[in-house]
């Protein structure tokens, strides 16, 4: 059956030139004009809505936090203030870091934000697990260097550290480079 059809079609030459029908022409022009007008209305709104993600994030300046002489092997929490612009509000945010000197003598400043879902961790705050960072939300635990032991998928982030004239300056938060 299909063979017969094929044969029939092959024998009949298609017309040499495809005429556009009036109906098709009107569909294209009206459709195109409509699409143009709709996008004229919609594009500004979309650009308006995504504006915040197209702003360049402020590149972190280094902020003076604490004297090097205060840092021990035991992690200590230090807080510092950051000037931040939030839309039409400018405010000072208080950030904190757990800072210690590791066995190689490097200064490591860990971010207190849990890598599970972002609660705030503390040092040595769970009696069952001494000398570890612990997150109260779902029980994530980390070593002194921030290596993830339970729950959290990644080690604690760290601040970039700069030492100048006996003072520690902290910059951007980056993935932990001191644990493997």
């Amino acid at each position: 059956m299909s063979n017969q059809n094929d044969h029939h079609e092959a024998s009949q030459k298609p017309p040499g030139r495809k005429e556009m029908s009036r109906r098709q022409f009107l569909t294209y022009t009206l459709g195109g004009a409509t699409a143009y007008m709709v996008s004229g209305a919609v594009l500004p709104m979309i650009r308006f809505a995504v504006d915040p993600i197209l702003h360049k994030g402020s590149k972190g300046n280094f902020i003076k936090v604490v004297e090097v002489s205060k840092i021990t092997n035991e992690p200590q929490e230090f807080s510092f203030e950051l000037q931040q612009q939030d839309g039409w509000y400018s405010s000072t945010a208080t950030l904190s870091a757990w800072i210690r000197k590791n066995d190689k003598g490097e200064i490591v400043a860990l971010s207190p934000v849990c890598k599970h879902l972002g609660c705030t961790i503390g040092w040595n705050n769970d009696k069952g697990y001494p000398d570890e960072y612990h997150c109260p939300c779902h029980g994530a635990r980390y070593t002194k260097d921030g290596k993830n032991l339970a729950v959290a998928p990644k080690p604690l982030d760290e601040y970039t550290v700069k030492v100048d004239n006996g003072w520690i300056y902290l910059g951007q938060i980056v993935p932990n480079k001191h644990v493997s």
Partner: peptide, 19 residues
């Protein structure tokens, strides 16, 4: 990360997130 920033309306949960 893009989705988060879009929903957040910026770098932090703040004024633009609330609106």
């Amino acid at each position: 990360p893009y989705l988060k920033e879009l929903m957040q309306g910026g770098q932090i949960v703040g004024a633009e997130t609330l609106t």
